[in-house]
Design a protein around this nucleic acid. Structure first.
Lengths: 78, 78, 78, 78
DNA sequence: GATGCGCTTTAAATGC
DNA sequence: GCATTTAAAGCGCATC
């Protein structure tokens, strides 16, 4: 691969990443706006964040438990 | 607003946020995959991150300078 | 504060940290030995790590839930 | 070994590990506190970390060199 | 050499 | 609004 092509390819990768990161930032802004809207409607943002956090942990914990079940199954040759 | 409605509305807000956070996570994964792909092609991921970071800083600096220029223009009544 | 004293004080801080880090490393070794011992007794180390991880998460989740309960109490003025 | 005994033994192993990990966490906290204290006294924490890292590497290098020396001694029948 | 894990660093969020 | 505290990302190590 010539250096010219490598350079071009690198630019491509970086461009794609920057594009996705821009979208990611936009989503972060959107989320913030929803929190603000909820706050304006009288909800407690801090509590909302806690709720979402706990729900996320629950999901993660469930996944963990399934993973350990898989381990047991493997250990038992099932 | 009745408590029932508030509850429903809260669920809506949380649902919207969770949806957007899921999209955000997906994007983070996509970005990681691009880095992996670039790595597999022989590029140095760490350097790529540096490049992207610097470009982002440059962009921020440019925006700041334009903001200052605007202030000057306003101060001079242009 | 004279530079001599500062130097001496810095040496003290670093010495204390190195002492604690040595203890920390010793503990890490001890933990590893227990895993090895368990392995030698026929237990599956990978599963053990999962169990410990989940127990730790459970503890963290419990603490989170108490935190959110506190938030609710505060929000309700209790 | 009956399953009951195995279960009990597993619980023992896990309990011992959790105990040691708790101590390890405590040490990590203690270390952090010393860094904070040093920071409050005007020292640069980042530099301190560098110093400690380098000293650790030096120690490792020294140990390695002594190991090589031992090999030479043995090879020479000293 | 790839994967996971802990530590470091940076970004976000809370409280004053 | 700023400064502390907390969460997320990145990085290096150590292991397999």
């Amino acid at each position: 691969m010539s250096e010219v092509i490598a350079k071009e390819q690198l630019a491509q990768f970086i461009s794609r990443i920057e594009r996705l990161e821009a979208e990611k930032s936009d989503l972060a802004e959107d989320i913030k706006e929803i929190y603000d809207e909820a706050k304006g409607t009288g909800f407690d943002v801090k509590i909302m964040r806690q709720i979402i956090k706990i729900k996320r942990q629950d999901k993660a914990k469930l996944a963990e438990q399934e993973a350990i079940l898989d381990l047991y199954r493997q250990a038992l040759g099932l």
